Each structure stands twice: as C-alpha cells, then as structure tokens.
Simulated assay, not measured.
Amino acid sequence: MSAFLDLQAGLLAYLRGQASLAVWLGTPVRVYDQAPAEVVYPYVSFGRVSAQSIGGVEADVTEQALNLICVSRFGGSEEAKAIAAELRVLLDGAELDVAGLVSLRVTYIDVFRSADQRTTYALVRLRAVTEAG
C-alpha cells in the first residue's frame, strides 16, 4: 500500500508546486485527493488507481495505473483540454521525489462533457512503475 500513498503524495507535492498549473488552477494550485464541498472550478482530483505486481529479479516491481481528473465549467472544452495538455507536459517522464519510482508516463487522455452539459472532464491516465526497497 505504501507505493500507492508515496506516489500520490509525490504527485500532489509536485503538481501543487508547478507555476504553469497555477495559471489554470489558481494559487494554491487546486489539486485534491478529494475535492472540497465548496469547490472552485477548474480543479484536478485523483480518480481510480489500480496496481499489479510485474515481478522483478532483485526487487518487487509494481505497475500502477492512476487517473487524474480535471473538472471544468468553462463553457466549452478548451480549458479542460489545456489543463490536460499541461499535465501531460509536466508528468510524462517526470522524475518525482518518490522512493522507488522507476518511470512515469502519461498513457491516455480523454476529454468529455457530462450529461448536464455544464461540466467538462479531462481524464489523464498515468502509468507508474515502482520498485520496493
């Protein structure tokens, strides 16, 4: 379970420290594990996370798939797309301060509107590979 928590903590710290995200997500940068009840738009929150062991000779190697979800009420998809693009630039191949992190890649982006037609979501899927000590 530590790999989950360490990766999320590293991502939160990294993303909250990015000036380029502050342009879109304000200061302090609105990246949440769970969005507050009185949330300000746009924001990014953590979504589904899955992990599986992929073996390893010298250490236990785990592959994690983690979703970041951008939520926008801009009135079009441009804002959500721009934030997703910035997340991709910042995270694809990023070297975070996370113990055992071998690689981090953006594998998928999907931008779509909700049924209410007011909210646009951008799902950014990450693939992280970590090694245990």
Results as ranks from 00 to 15, higher is better:
S2Y: 05
L5G: 13
D6W: 00
A9G: 03
G10Y: 06
L11M: 07
L11P: 11
L12C: 03
Q18I: 09
A19S: 14
S20G: 02
L21Q: 05
G26L: 05
P28G: 10
V31W: 04
Q34F: 13
A35C: 10
A35L: 08
E38S: 12
V40K: 14
V40C: 01
P42I: 11
P42A: 04
R48I: 04
R48C: 00
V49D: 03
A51M: 14
G56S: 03
G56H: 03
E58Y: 02
A59R: 13
A59T: 06
T62Q: 03
Q64S: 13
L66Y: 10
L66N: 07
I69H: 01
I69L: 14
C70H: 00
F74Y: 14
F74D: 07
G76Y: 03
E78D: 15
E78Y: 01
E78L: 11
I83T: 10
I83W: 08
L87Y: 04
V89N: 10
L90G: 06
G93R: 06
D97M: 03
D97C: 00
A99N: 11
L101S: 06
S103K: 02
S103G: 05
L104G: 11
R105W: 02
T107V: 15
V111Q: 09
F112Y: 15
D116I: 00
R118T: 03
L123T: 04
V124W: 07
A128C: 09
V129C: 02
E131G: 02
